[in-house]
Nucleic acid binder design. Structure first.
Lengths: 189, 189
DNA sequence: GTAATTTCTTAAACTACTTCAAGAATTTAG
DNA sequence: CTAAATTCTTGAAGTAGTTTAAGAAATTAC
């Protein structure tokens, strides 16, 4: 996390130490464990030290839809629940054994007041997240399922080794069967 | 804009005055005018005082896809171009006669250093934008075209009076012809 | 190490939505 | 006020992607 803080923000050694060692706690989860469950209130923000996870939403039919994947050096959490104290709408689940740093709402607020440059850091992260999501919407509007699949593989070639076809399909908004067909097509070419 | 600054940030009268009167310039655009053109560098962030606009992207076939609409009290701009100085990828075009406040990169940076609480304000805005986009992705993954259309009408009933069917269709990622069919269906019920 | 569970593949039938085309209605421009 | 341009509607034909079902392959669990 130290590297990440230094890359996206400007902190003193002392401040970094405070954030990482005083205000964060290290947590581990097994594969398939839930870090955040929709319907429950989430009081933490999480930073991935090791492993990967998915964030998903459950629709009115009970189907799961992946909204996001997170790998090393990635912040996540149900921001809305964290801020408002209302029930989370997203689920976050470990796809590999996960090692996280967790910061409670209480400590998060302390950091924000005690370390002014943390706000600029947050700002940068939200901005990046916003631009990322906007690009993802653009991709949904401009590309076919097939194009979205190849686009993902090209942008994140290693994803395929860590995320199951089923989860990739869900993230892209395609049925797993159709991804299977696309794979076959690619082989035949 | 003053109201918006006070709602989402905490500023003194003096600071607000400085932002609005010293660092912003008022611009007007006619309907169909481009505020930002993809391919050109954009050095401004814009705040809508009156009117509405669309942000869109052009795909490899030359087709336009609406990414966003903005009404009164809305900030917009090609954030990526503004930040990096590279060419914008989004177009922004007036859908009604537009009255804007524009803040140049230079002044934007001045505000950020001279008025510390502006960063927290920005942070809040980016966070809201991020959550909004995330919800939009969730809607694309969980809902059919028909559901997305009704969902939009329910959430923003007045949109229909200000935005053409064609532009609504583009925003939802549906063909205008199909929206026409949906409208007919709704009337028949 | 074996049974149980989950993931992936394949194929056939289906459908939500698109594309194309052409006319009607509305808006814009001079 | 009229012509030109754009937007909206309707219908018919087409297709990208879904659904269902069932077996094969891989992974998980004890």
């Amino acid at each position: 996390m130290k590297n990440h803080l230094l890359t996206y923000g400007s902190f003193s050694e002392y401040e970094i130490d405070k954030i990482v060692n005083e205000y964060s706690e290290e947590l581990t989860f097994k594969k398939r464990d839930y870090i955040v469950t929709a319907g429950e209130v989430s009081h933490y923000q999480y930073f991935i030290l090791e492993g990967c996870m998915r964030g998903f939403i459950i629709d009115y039919q009970g189907k799961e839809h992946n909204i996001i994947f997170g790998f090393e050096d990635f912040w996540f959490g149900d921001m809305e629940s964290f801020d408002s104290g209302k029930a989370a709408i997203y689920n976050f689940q470990a796809l590999e054994p996960l090692k996280l740093l967790a910061i409670s709402k209480e400590n998060w607020d302390k950091i924000s007041t005690e370390i002014p440059s943390f706000i600029a850091y947050k700002c940068k992260l939200f901005q990046n997240a916003m631009m990322f999501q906007q690009m993802r919407i653009a991709e949904h509007l401009t590309q076919s399922a097939e194009q979205r699949y190849y686009n993902l593989l090209q942008k994140y070639p290693d994803v395929i080794f860590r995320i199951s076809l089923k989860n990739i399909a869900s993230y892209l908004g395609i049925s797993p069967e159709f991804v299977s067909i696309l794979r076959k097509r690619a082989v035949q070419k």
